[in-house]
Amino acid sequence: MWEVEIRGMASAHALLAGSVLVGSLMPALTVENSSVYGTHLVWLYSVSACIAVVNIAVFWLLGISPPTKKNTLSYKLSRLIRSCLYFLLSCLFFHTVVVLYGAPLLESALETFSLAVLLSTLTTLRCLCMLGPNVQAWIRVFSRDGAMSVWDTSLQITTGCSVVGAWLGAFPIPLDWDRPWQVWPISCSLGATGGFLTGLLAAPIWIRWHRKQLTYKLK
């Protein structure tokens, strides 16, 4: 039982990690003179889009998300609209938090918002795919001992890692090295992506390591 779930999750994570790679390579192949530093926003949106597509494909189409009771079209549509709304709200939330952390309010607002989009893709989108637009479920998963399945634990780990990665990515900014990756928001978005990849890698390993201690009550 454990082995099967962990293997499934590992392959899903491998797909996601691959999508990050594809997202990084795509601008290099299609757009001329593109580099991660120079045309950072292109890279950022390309990675976000790839992750989003793969996430939706893996979790929604393959049916890992909880089965819905009602199966009418209107219900599905309302869920879709609510999901989009939540995603937008989460972008705004991340934007606000980043500004509170000291990002300039008006200058380079586009860069700040792009970072917020990336962060939302890495965190909120996964929640939306796996839990649906259901705030109660989110609160349950992200409170202490709230995980009810392996997928919940992996969600906790990847989300935490992404946010912590972005947090750590802000540290090199005050250094006076004048490097191209110190420009706002490159170090933060790179940190978030790195954190996300670390989370993808760490989640199966961690769960496997702790499989004795992990007990999911309601399962």
Partner: peptide, 11 residues
């Protein structure tokens, strides 16, 4: 640099 910008650390 971090000494010069210590306020950033604290904020």
């Amino acid at each position: 640099s971090f000494i010069e910008e210590e306020h950033q650390t604290w904020y």
